[in-house]
């Protein structure tokens, strides 16, 4: 069972983000980049599939040289091969077209992506790739069982679990809870350093025109400090709280 995992390099959620002077991108200086956390579940699941059913795990990303680090993290976790796609990907659709063209060539039995990337939170790429390939897709997967022909996946739905059956090849997107991603082992990190990352260029005729354009990016406004009520008895406190919620916060 050959699996392709789609990974994206995103800013570490702990780093403070600044918008660059153009106003539509984040300023990459001083930002610590990591593998998108949902993609870690995807990589882990692919490795488990390989351990159970054999085959190969190929990780794929669209991006510049810097994104090799995310691929190397996946290699260090145990992925067999890595492909970095360079393409003029400007929005989820152009990205998905680039990916779909390479996946078609790789011909895997399964594609696993994270359910969304935590940087732009679009959550589109996995689904778009499935649509472009005309493959079944199962999103927000929390449990997976495969047989040579197909699989059964559990999905997280509001207040419960949905169980779906699908045929292969298919595209899945991983939700937190699917598994516990393993650590990249240290010998794995050293070996990953020596592995070759295959570069594939996808040209503009394939990626086509973007359908979305970012026009502005804002950081959230700083929240004003809270109010602490003190030095009052319970009755006065309750009264003051009701007044504030009514008059200031306009919540009641």
């Amino acid at each position: 069972m050959n699996v392709v995992v789609l990974v994206k390099q995103v800013p570490d959620t702990a780093t403070r983000i600044k918008v660059s002077s153009g106003g539509v991108e984040i300023d990459p200086r001083g930002v610590n980049y990591v593998m998108n956390p949902y993609d870690e579940f995807a990589v882990e699941e692919a490795l488990r599939v390989k351990e159970l059913h054999g085959g190969q795990v190929t990780v794929l990303t669209v991006g510049g040289e810097k994104a090799d680090e995310a691929l190397r993290t996946a290699l260090a976790m145990g992925a067999d091969e890595a492909v970095r796609v360079s393409a003029d990907a400007k929005d989820p659709l152009t990205t998905a077209r680039a990916i779909a063209s390479v996946v078609r060539e790789l011909g895997p039995d399964l594609v696993i992506a994270g359910k969304q990337a935590v940087d732009d939170d679009q959550g589109q790429v996995g689904s778009l790739v499935a649509a472009l390939l005309d493959w079944p897709q199962v999103t927000v997967v929390t449990e997976l069982e495969l047989s040579p022909e197909g699989g059964v996946a559990e999905r997280e739905v509001e207040g419960g679990v949905e169980v779906v059956e699908f045929s292969l090849p298919a595209v899945l997107t991983a939700q937190k809870g699917l598994n516990e991603p393993r650590y990249a082992s240290l010998p794995g990190i050293m070996k990953a350093k020596r592995k070759e990352i295959r570069q594939v260029a996808v040209d503009a005729a394939v990626t086509g025109e973007p359908v979305l354009r970012t026009t502005a990016l804002h950081v959230p406004e700083e929240r004003s400090a809270g109010i602490i009520l003190r030095d009052m008895d319970a009755a006065a406190l309750a009264k003051e709280l009701v007044r504030l919620l009514h008059e200031e916060a306009k919540l009641i």
Partner: peptide
């Protein structure tokens, strides 16, 4: 040991991770 920390700066042929002393100091 499972992670490879206990032989981090030791060559792979001696059971290590094949890392550097710098990496070990960081660890």
């Amino acid at each position: 040991g499972e992670l490879g920390l206990l032989g981090l700066p030791i060559a792979e042929r001696y059971g290590g991770a094949g890392g550097t002393y710098l990496q070990y100091a960081i660890a």
